[in-house]
């Protein structure tokens, strides 16, 4: 699993497209296109799946559950996603999440909860990822890389 993060409109999607030479749109599951949180990834012919806009799925979770439950559900998803990825050699999961955690403390309770859960969820996904990149206006910085050297 490769976690890609960075601020809004920093070129994360373009970087993933370029890095993985992504061809068709079928491998993208994007929260920005109203796709619901895919708890399980179905076995299909695709070797590469890209999940985009996870911050919106996390927001959805916070609207229905308390913080610790959100994090449990999130970790359950990570578990299923990783088992999809390890189900076949050459499978690659790329997860893109916009960093929404560096602004002023939000006024509204629900937005504070969203921001908190997003921060924790990013720590969880980074901990379980093989590779983590931060994208800054199109430039990437690899902040974690496991295994292959």
């Amino acid at each position: 699993m490769h976690f890609v993060t960075g601020g809004a409109f920093n070129g994360k999607r373009a970087w993933v497209n370029k890095t993985y030479c992504v061809k068709g749109p079928e491998v993208w599951l994007s929260a920005y296109h109203d796709i619901p949180l895919p708890e399980q990834l179905k076995d299909n012919d695709q070797d590469v799946i890209i999940l985009e806009g996870i911050e919106l799925w996390l927001k959805e979770l916070t609207m229905n559950h308390e913080a610790s439950r959100c994090r449990d559900i999130w970790n359950q998803c990570l578990h299923y996603w990783l088992s999809w990825e390890s189900g076949k050699e050459d499978r690659q999961l790329i997860v893109i999440g916009t960093d929404i955690t560096k602004g002023i403390v939000p006024m509204e309770r629900e937005n504070r909860l969203w921001r908190d859960v997003t921060g924790w969820a990013y720590q969880d996904i980074a901990a379980q990822s093989e590779k983590v990149d931060v994208i800054w206006y199109g430039l990437n910085q690899t902040i974690k890389k496991r295994g292959a050297y």
Binding site: A8, F9, I100, T101, K102, G103, P106
Partner: peptide, 20 residues
């Protein structure tokens, strides 16, 4: 660009061109 992009369309458009 590191906080939730507001649901207001104006802020969204502003953020997008600044990022670009």
């Amino acid at each position: 660009l590191f906080e939730p992009v507001s649901e207001s369309n104006l802020v969204l458009m502003y953020s997008r061109i600044l990022g670009q």
